[in-house]
Computed example of a mutant assay.
Amino acid sequence: MPITISPPAPTSDDSIELVFSGSGCVLSTSQAQVGANFEFTVILNGTCFATPPSFSFTWNVGRLPPGDYTTTLSLGGSIMESQALAVSQGVLPFPAPIPSVGFGGLVLLAVAMVLIANKSQEGRAKAINRVRHDIEVN
């Protein structure tokens, strides 16, 4: 059951395709990227023809940052093949990842929003009280 990587020596400029092929009566498939591992799972049907048909599934993973990856083909829960995938630096700039905020950052952001909203409400209340006072005096 071979895994074919296209192009064979990808750079970060290339759109990468992984092709998983073999033979058997396929019941279902699934694919997942877990970190630097691309996992493709095939579940075969228990009953099949005398000569199982061949199958081929293509997974377009797109552009990847330079680095080392692994592709894995599992058949019914058992790893049938694993292959290294090395992506070298291309000439095009690779988009920078969007920074994310952890749980602590979200808590600080929420507290800041509450404080700002509270300060805004205090200013509004003072303005309303001034208007009421001006109305009472006149």
Rank of each mutant, 00 (worst) to 15 (best):
L85Q: 02
T51R: 11
P53D: 06
R63D: 09
Y69I: 06
N37V: 13
T72V: 09
V61I: 12
V91G: 15
V61R: 14
S78H: 02
L64E: 03
G35W: 13
A86S: 14
V42F: 01
N45R: 13
D68P: 07
L64F: 01
P65D: 00
Y69S: 03
T47M: 12
P52H: 01
P99W: 14
N45L: 12
P65G: 03
S74V: 11
T71C: 15
A96C: 07
L64A: 03
G90V: 01
S78T: 11
P99E: 13
E81T: 05
P99M: 05
T51K: 13
I79F: 09
I43C: 03
G62K: 08
C48D: 03
V91A: 15
S82G: 02
I43M: 09
I43L: 03
G77M: 00
L44A: 10
T71G: 09
G90R: 04
S100T: 09
V101D: 04
L75R: 08
C48G: 00
G35H: 04
Q89E: 11
T72C: 04
P66W: 04
A50E: 14
T70K: 11
D68C: 05
A50W: 07
F57L: 02
T47V: 05
D68H: 13
S56Y: 15
F55W: 14
S78K: 11
S100W: 00
E81I: 08
V61T: 08
V42E: 06
V61H: 15
N60M: 14
P66K: 10
P99Q: 15
R63Y: 04
S88L: 03
T70G: 13
L92I: 13
L64Y: 00
I79D: 10
N37H: 05
Q89T: 08
F55G: 05
S82V: 08
P99L: 14
E81S: 10
F49T: 08
F49D: 11
S100K: 07
Q83S: 01
G46Y: 14
P99D: 08
C48P: 02
S100I: 08
T47F: 02
G46R: 06
T58Y: 00
N60C: 07
I98P: 06
F94C: 03
